[in-house]
Design a protein around this nucleic acid. Structure first.
Length: 553
RNA sequence: GGGCCCGUAGCUCAGCUGGAUAGAGCAACGGACUUCUAAUCCGUAGGUCGGAGGUUCGAAUCCUCCCGGGCCCGCCA
């Protein structure tokens, strides 16, 4: 209905001040005022026009209102304060909106204008199970994808597999050494090896992999070390990737593409990109290493792309990877990274610029730390390297619905304290329950009504005139606007807040008004129609979060 | 030292492309169940929006400086 009010105002402005003045509408706000007395929608256009026209906001607002009075869409249009214009929607407009909510896919829109967006998220190294931090990034990416699809973007999801280079070799070495240990040999793990320790499970995944590998390949330790390590690396990587994929499936997170770093090397992509940079004169050698002049493009120091030992850095393949993404024809790339990588942004953007592409093509969403709390105290693992809390553990503790919902309870760039007790609570203090309960409650009302022979009908919507009913109608419809905000601002957490507010409005309505009323069949049918609209909106909203909307609880 | 992020109610946080008297949940206190799910709702109380300047009709929101907290500054990823 915002769009509708905006259109009407645009017509009025055009009539009074001419076509040129209409442009300010783009910057004007059309919001639901905080105070009810100010009506259903308020706009500040008069203030914006005041600057352009050099007249008082109040006088301009009065001119606009003069034209708008008499429209059948508004019960009233009034000037307030120093120049706000407040609209009260007419009953017929409310009815129209509710109809749209129940009968159409009203929440779809086209703010994305068909933009092709490549979303890359999780991209965890296949050197261990996913931890809770990965989970948060996964849910943010997944929900952003779903919302973008509904708002006119053409998004795709990608997981970048770091299956080349040092980390994988180190994984192989770690497994190999643990295998030796299993056979009774005394070994010392290098400082940066994976210990495999998962304290909270009292398990060690490197030992487990070593054991499994020894069963498959009993002669492993008789092979030359280099060959054995390579076999262990390949095996470990495959196994861990499978585990990661299983964890993601359980979290209900999917991908369209699994992109292998190793393939970049095998196809010569890394060399090719470095050659382009070479030709442009952005590479130089120093102390035996090959450097990229990222400082020419805003980075604070130059970066190594090939180490003095001849190995490429992670940065080198990352340049090739991003170049590859751009060449695949996406209009925009969005990477979701852990916030500790923020220092990495300038060099990647610099590399893109060095390649002659627009660094603004790439957007980075940073995901802050997740801390887990139980009984008011943080669950802390010992600081030893590689020791963390697996995502799978969290899912097993509180369930997928709570995990997904809770990960979106704060903006992605602020640290998240995850309260396990709260996630398991079955009271209104637990937002997941609160929202799901609203849905179940409505299903229960609809079932009850059916038993008593009532069914939803739009015949007498003119009976829905109370404050709570109007509130619900507008809130349902504003899902469309919320989704646009989520997509444009890349802030999926808005959706959880929206659902909590919708559920709250519903509970308020429910406690004040009786839906099924044997004495008044007309009103019952109309309210059932509203109930169906709210139920549908909750179902759609929860569906986008990929959280269950139960019929019964 | 440099860079990025953050400072809003006792606690956890929304609100930030500038808009009317700054919101929610929890905790506290007081109420509402012969009635469609009380797994809910209503009310009360709680604030120098870290501080100081600036921009203007108007600032939690934008700019500058200061204070406080976190993270990052590798030929690791």
């Amino acid at each position: 209905m915002k769009e509708l009010v905006k259109e009407r105002v645009a017509e009025a402005v055009r009539k009074v001040y001419g076509e040129d003045a209409v442009a300010v509408l783009e910057r004007a706000s059309f919001e639901k005022p905080k105070r009810k007395e100010f009506g259903d929608i308020a706009t500040n256009v008069a203030f914006l026009l005041a600057k352009v026209l050099r007249q008082s906001p109040r006088a301009i607002a009065e001119e606009i209102v003069r034209v708008l009075r008499g429209s059948r869409d508004f019960e009233s249009v009034e000037v307030a304060g120093r120049g706000f214009i407040n609209f009260k929607l007419s009953q017929s407009l409310y009815e129209e909106i509710l109809n749209a909510v129940v009968e159409t896919d009203f929440y779809l829109s086209d703010v994305g204008r068909g933009e092709r967006v490549l979303l890359e998220y999780v991209s965890a190294n296949p050197t261990g199970p996913l931890h809770v931090g990965h989970g948060r990034g996964a849910v943010v990416g997944d929900v952003l994808y779903r919302v973008m699809k509904l708002t006119g973007y053409r998004p795709e999801r990608e997981f970048y597999i770091n299956d080349a280079g040092r980390q994988i070799k180190l994984l192989g070495l770690s497994i190999y050494l643990r295998a030796k240990e299993l056979k009774g040999e005394k070994v010392t793990l290098p400082e940066d090896a994976y210990s495999g320790e998962i304290e909270i499970w009292k398990r060690n995944y490197i030992f487990e992999l070593a054991e499994k590998l020894l069963k498959l390949k009993p002669d492993l330790l008789e092979l030359p070390e280099e060959e054995a390590v390579e076999i262990a690396a390949e095996f470990g990587k495959e196994e861990l990737l499978k585990q990661i994929q299983e964890d993601l499936r359980e979290l209900r997170v999917e991908f369209d593409h699994w992109f292998s770093e190793r393939e970049l090397y095998e196809k010569g992509e890394v060399e090719r990109v470095l050659r382009i940079l070479e030709e442009k004169g952005y590479l130089y050698e120093k102390e035996g290493a090959l450097w990229l002049k990222t400082t020419l493009f805003g980075d604070d120091k130059d970066r190594v792309v090939r180490r003095s030992n001849g190995e490429y850095t992670y940065f080198a393949s990352d340049i090739a990877y991003h170049y590859n993404k751009i060449e695949r024809g996406y209009d925009r790339g969005i990477d979701i990274w852990g916030a500790d990588h923020h220092g990495y942004i300038p060099r990647v953007k610099a590399a893109i610029a060095a390649l002659g592409k627009d660094p603004n093509w790439l957007e980075i969403i940073l995901i802050q730390l997740v801390k887990l709390f139980r009984n008011g105290a943080e669950i802390k693992m010992s600081k030893r390297k590689g020791n963390f809390i697996p995502l799978k553990w969290l899912i097993d503790e509180v369930g997928v619905d709570a995990v997904r919902f809770f990960f979106l309870l704060k903006r992605h760039d602020t640290p998240l304290d995850f309260d396990l007790d709260l996630a398991l609570s079955t009271k209104s203090e637990n937002p997941v329950y609160y929202v799901q309960y609203a849905h179940a409650r409505l299903c229960s009302v609809l079932d009850k009504a059916k038993e008593e022979g009532f069914k939803p009908s739009s015949n007498s919507l003119n009976l829905l005139t109370t404050e709570e009913e109007r509130e619900l109608i507008l809130r349902c419809y504003s899902l469309k606007y919320e989704l646009q905000q989520v997509a444009v601002k890349r802030e999926p957490h808005r959706l959880t807040y929206y659902l909590i507010e919708l559920a709250s409005a519903l509970h308020r309505f429910y406690n004040k008004h009786r839906v099924v009323d044997g004495e008044n069949g007309e009103l019952t049918s109309a309210r059932l129609y509203l109930v169906e609209g709210v139920r549908k909106t909750l179902e759609v909203g929860l569906g986008i979060l990929n959280v269950k909307a139960p019929r019964r609880m």
